[in-house]
Design a protein around this nucleic acid. Sequence first.
DNA 1: CGAGTGACCGACC
DNA 2: CGGTCGGCCACTC
Length: 110
Amino acid sequence: MDKDTFFDRVYEVARLIPVGRVTSYGAIAEYLGTKGSARMVGYAMNASGTAQPRVPAHRVVNRFGMLSGKSHFPGQNLMEEMLKSEGIEVENDLIKDFENLFWDPNKELL
DNA sequence: CGAGTGACCGACC
DNA sequence: CGGTCGGCCACTC
């Protein structure tokens, strides 16, 4: 918490994602000012397991709306289950109506 | 302290 | 039109 690291900032934004909504790594990266470094966002998510409180990494997907990071969850189908649990329709690791459910921090948070 | 790494994105051939 | 490659940059070992 005391560490004002880039990771914590990513977690902050990720935690701001409303339930039933999703965002992309690039959107968060752009919001943080590191647009070109979307990898860092994903990398931060990699350490999300060590972050507290736990970060809803399942609400963060790539710009295709695909559960790219589902493989990194304890259960390979856990991410999909979580999203479904929040009312998000997921099919074959792909979020339905992704554009509609997309939550852009740059526009929503401003 | 140097080098490797990564759940992405976009550009180029 | 599709695959390949590079960049970006903060963190860990």
